[in-house]
């Protein structure tokens, strides 16, 4: 079963309101999902339509003169795109972690390893998680929103089976035990809401004084 981001997330992404860790998860999904790419492009076209029919606010003439004067200096300078091919790491993550998922210096021990993705947006915590083939994460529950984008392999839990490329939003009420399929390690990008974690940290600090 391939899971996808819902329309609200896609429209936020396409309109530029998801420039955060959650946006990275959507971008990783779009890289392999043509349906969602098409929807996102459709929402961009909605933006184009908005631009077309909006009430114009003219700029002062000086802005035009100064821009025209800058054109020569600004001649062809194709913006460098990071290569689409290369390692197995999805392109949206390559500025933050190694190009190849196998070259990541995983932390932790046992069947479930992790690597923090150093994105700071003040709202989320992003991690890569590597679950060894055929093994399970201990049964757990989430405190808030968690989004999981499967980058490699597949897993199943009590709700269903998720194939490579799935974008899964976990219900905080759900207690589950993801288990990787036996053939290959399952690697996911997991994005969780940060506020709860920070609040707890603060509470831990504050509590001694309250007593």
């Amino acid at each position: 079963m391939m899971q996808h981001p819902d329309q609200t997330l896609l429209i936020k992404f396409a309109s530029g309101n998801l420039a955060d860790a959650l946006g990275l998860a959507v971008a990783c999904h779009l890289e392999i999902c043509e349906d969602c790419r098409q929807q996102s492009a459709g929402f961009e076209a909605l933006g184009g339509q908005l631009l077309d029919e909006i009430e114009p606010t003219p700029l002062p003439d000086e802005r035009k003169y100064s821009l025209m004067a800058r054109l020569d200096a600004a001649s062809e300078k194709p913006s460098p795109d990071r290569p689409a091919k290369g390692g197995s790491t999805p392109r949206p993550l390559r500025r933050f972690v190694a190009d190849d998922l196998d070259r990541i210096r995983w932390r932790g021990f046992g069947n479930s390893l992790y690597y923090p993705v150093p994105v700071t947006d003040g709202r989320h915590v992003a991690r890569l998680i590597r679950l060894k083939a055929g093994t399970a994460v201990p049964r757990h529950r989430h405190r808030g929103l968690e989004v999981t984008q499967i980058l490699q392999g597949a897993f199943h839990d009590c709700v269903g089976e998720y194939e490579t490329g799935s974008f899964i939003v976990t219900d905080p009420a759900l207690e589950h035990q993801p288990t990787a399929t036996p053939d290959t390690d399952c690697i996911c990008l997991a994005v969780t809401g940060a506020s709860l974690i920070f609040t707890e940290g603060l509470l831990r600090l504050v509590n001694p004084f309250l007593r």
Binding site: L18, A19, A21, G23, V26, A41, D81, A84, D121
Partner: peptide, 25 residues
């Protein structure tokens, strides 16, 4: 360490897929 537009979108992708363009439109 924050997300850039380059991370989210390939700015000016070289490959041009006409079928995909038609579907999008």
């Amino acid at each position: 360490r924050t997300v850039s537009s380059d991370d989210l979108w390939q700015q000016f992708p070289a490959e041009k897929n006409r079928d995909e363009g038609d579907l999008n439109a």
